[in-house]
């Protein structure tokens, strides 16, 4: 049994045992000066649930992610992760508890190889971050780095510097970084942006084949992608969540069509 499988099985058991919410936001507000990027956002996502967050540009979706990861502290409100109040935690403490995220504009280490990038991600959520001993090829973490690289179809460019990758490959690497270690909840920030139709279906395949105990929130403009990978949908507008429902309900909701699809079906 490979390491990854073993970890998934344990994770599935944990996921089944945990009945609480993976993520819980209560009254989260974030001000930038006088501008409210988020206003009184209350949101709960159950363990293993997959949520799509839709909304126009400037609706506050990425600010929501930044508050959850701790890049920004909310001006008011509380954030609970797996039942624990993490409102004041620095980002790395939240990541070490199983939270992951990808970025809308790839934030990668361009001077390092694909393997080094993924290895760093694996190292970041395990012990030995300050180790002075070089990793060997057959180290457990190195092995999981290779497995992740294979999982996102980057096996052939493992030794290539990130700066030399194509845009699509960089997006795939971005996802690999978020899958490192034992993720329990992932925030995907527009993972499909700029991808070709083929790459999009590959992405959908990667997302839907994630172990069921891993929940996520996905920000996505492509309704086709978003509604195929999500169990539920939250609609954001002007820093507020104004509607939640099943993908089918949201798709046919006249208010949503008016706002989000610009009345395209009318």
């Amino acid at each position: 049994m490979s390491l990854l499988e073993a970890r998934r099985n344990i994770g599935d058991m944990l996921g089944a045992a945990g009945t609480g919410n993976a993520l819980e936001l209560r009254g989260v507000t974030r001000m930038f000066g006088a501008l409210a990027a988020l206003t009184d956002v209350t949101l709960s996502v159950k363990s293993g649930e997959r949520r799509a967050v839709l909304g126009s540009n400037g609706a506050g979706k990425t600010t929501l992610f930044n508050c959850v990861t701790g890049d920004f502290l909310p001006t008011s409100g509380t954030i609970r992760l797996f039942g624990e109040d993490v409102t004041k935690f620095p980002p790395y403490e939240r990541i070490r508890r199983g939270l992951r995220r990808t970025y809308q504009i790839s934030l990668l280490f361009n001077g390092l190889s694909v393997l080094d990038n993924v290895y760093l991600a694996c190292r970041g959520v395990s012990r030995g971050r300050y180790s002075l001993i070089r990793p060997r090829r057959n180290d457990a973490l190195m092995q999981s780095a290779f497995e992740l690289i294979e999982a996102v179809h980057l096996g052939e460019v493992a030794e290539t510097k990130v700066a030399e990758l194509s845009y699509g490959q960089q997006r795939q690497l971005e996802i690999a970084l978020a899958l490192a270690g034992a993720p329990r909840f992932i925030l995907f920030d527009e993972p499909a942006a700029g991808l070709s139709p083929t790459e999009r279906s590959e992405l959908v395949q990667i997302l839907t084949s994630l172990p069921r105990h891993i929940g996520y929130i996905i920000i996505e403009h492509d309704m086709d992608v978003a509604l195929r990978v999500a169990d539920s949908v939250s609609m954001m507008h002007n820093g507020r969540i104004f509607k939640e429902g099943l993908p089918s309900e949201i798709e046919n909701d006249p208010e949503v069509q008016q706002l989000y699809l610009g009345g395209g079906h009318g």
């Binding site: 701790g70 980002p91 280490f109 991600a121 970084l177």
Partner: peptide, 17 residues
């Protein structure tokens, strides 16, 4: 490696734990 990561992209390093 992590130090070089911190040099290139401290925000991402924090998001990796």
């Amino acid at each position: 490696l992590a130090l070089q990561g911190v040099r290139d992209n401290p925000r991402r390093m924090a998001a990796l734990g």
